[in-house]
Structure formats: C-alpha cells, structure tokens
C-alpha cells in the first residue's frame, strides 16, 4: 500500500520530467545578453512580444551589468549583446567578438538623493559641479561598483570633476557591487546619493525619500548599442535570427516601439539608430 504511494510519486516525477523535455522543444529562439536597466525598466516586456509576433523568434534575455553581459557574449553564451557603455563595446568589437555595433537609443542618467540634500546640490544642471560638492561634503554616495555601464559612467564623472577617488574615498563612498535596483534600495535605506539610469528610476517602486537632484546635463546621456556576437568565433551563434532582431530594433517599426514605451506618461528611451556618431 505504501509501496504503491512511493511508486506513484516516482512515476509522477518522471512524467514531470517528460513534460519538461517536451516544453523545451521550442522552435526558434535567440539569447540576448543585456543590462539590468533594460529589463528592470520593463522595456523588453513591451518590445519583445511585437518582435516575436512578427518573426516567430522568441527572445531570451539575460539581464546583467554591461561588463558581465559582454563577458557572457565573450564566452559564446549569447547571440546578441544589447548594452550601454560605448568604450567597452568598441573594445569588444576590436577583440573580434562582435560583428558590427548599431546605435539603438539613449536614455539619460539622473543623480538621485535624499530630500535632506546634505550636499546642497538639488535642482542643479551641472553634474560635474554636483559631484565635486558631494566629494567635498563627504555626503554618502552609493556606487554600483560592478563594472556596469552605469558604473563606468559614474567613474567618468568623478574623473571629469577632478576627484581622485582612491585618494579621497572613505566612509561616505560605498561600493556595493550590485545591480541598479539593489543600489537604489541601498541609497534609500542610507539616505545617500547615487547615479541611476532614468528608466530604472522611474519604474523603481521603492523610492521612499529619494528624488532626482540633478538631471538634464549632456554629460548624463546614456547611449545603448546592439551587436551580433561573431559567428566566426562561435559556430553556435544564431547569426540569422540574431541579425533579424538587430534589424528590427533599428528599423522604423522597432524605433517607434521604443519611443512609444512610457511609464506614468514619461518616455524612458529615445531612439537614435539614425545617428551614426551615437
């Protein structure tokens, strides 16, 4: 009697495994290594169904920091990379891992901070000046510290502000080595400043006391590019389907889908595939 119970349990597990194998026999899909900002902001949830409906190709998105996403592609574990750190992308191309870089869109970074504004920078338009103030006042600042696109943008801003980070950093500067969302959660909990992409910020639900303190500086623009992983390096890369995704992203149809994505009436991403310098 008990034996039968055990046998039934074992059988149902085998059936489950069988179903799984069946479910996995999906026809066409590509793997895209992308950034947490595109996923956490909800952009992909809005874009992908339209692409899949048109082409029959399913897109599997691995959301990582830009550095990690490029690394995933370097190992041959993705077909397409869709990230936002131009210098790292160019290096990737140079090393022969990518075929061609296409600019897709930009959004911008914003400096967010607590209402108490200990560095007194709220409402400013000059991000470099604001960073100087933060360092001078040793106001708490949370850094991603994960080699992501946002992280490298942040480091560039410290440099532009002539702040020698290794020399001045202390208690106030906290690298947490995590994604944008976790960084915002931490900034909220510690009443600290941080740099965020606008998309993640708008979609972020746990703002608490945080608000935008600096925005609109040209230096805060954040360009996204997309590249096919080089099939000459990895024969497993789905070159045709991957290229189809890229072509769709930069096509008028893809570009207007990006422009149409809004949260609370705010446009998060601005298509600029036609700007060759981006």
């Amino acid at each position: 009697m008990l034996r039968r119970t055990f046998v039934t349990a074992a059988a149902s597990v085998l059936v489950a495994i069988g179903m799984l194998s069946a479910a996995e026999a999906q026809d066409r899909f590509i793997t895209v290594a992308s950034t947490t900002s595109t996923q956490d902001s909800g952009l992909f949830d809005a874009l992908l169904p339209a692409f899949t409906a048109k082409t029959g190709i399913t897109v599997k998105v691995i959301a990582q920091g830009t550095g990690q996403a490029l690394d995933t592609a370097r190992r041959g574990d993705a077909d397409v990379v869709f990230v936002h750190a131009k210098s790292q992308e160019l290096k990737f191309l140079e090393d022969g891992f990518g075929v061609k870089r296409y600019p897709v869109m930009y959004n911008d970074f914003v400096v967010v901070g607590p209402k108490s504004d200990p560095a007194g920078i709220a409402g400013g338009k000059d991000v470099v000046a604001a960073f100087k103030m933060i360092a001078d006042k040793k106001a708490p600042f949370v850094s991603r510290g994960d080699k992501s696109g946002t992280n490298s943008a942040e480091l560039k801003l410290w440099k532009a502000a002539d702040i020698d980070l290794p020399a001045v950093r202390g208690e106030w500067y906290r690298e947490i080595g995590q994604g944008m969302g976790a960084t915002l959660n931490t900034a909220n909990a510690m009443a600290a400043y941080t740099l965020s992409d606008r998309g993640t910020w708008i979609a972020f639900a746990n703002k608490g006391d945080l608000g935008i303190v600096v925005e609109g500086d040209k230096k805060l623009f954040n360009q996204y590019g997309v590249m096919l992983v080089n099939p000459a390096k990895f024969s497993t890369v789905k070159a045709d389907d991957g290229q189809a995704f890229i072509d769709w992203l930069v096509s008028p149809e893809g570009q207007s889908a990006i422009a149409a994505y809004r949260i609370d009436g705010q446009q998060l991403f601005f298509p600029n595939a036609n700007d060759p310098k981006a």
Binding site: K60, I62, A205
Partner: peptide, 26 residues
C-alpha cells in the same frame, strides 16, 4: 539559469528581481 522571463524565472529569482526593481511588497 539567467533568470529569463518565462523560461528560467523561478520563485526565488523573481523575488530577487522584484527586490531589485524596488517592488518590495510584490
């Protein structure tokens, strides 16, 4: 697993994702 929506997203990776989106109640 890569936490791919609809493919390798599980309960625990969803929790990690929603936390990173700041949707703590969810």
């Amino acid at each position: 697993g890569g936490n791919i929506a609809g493919f390798t997203r599980t309960m625990t990776t969803s929790i990690a994702l929603e936390t990173s989106k700041g949707d703590l109640p969810l």
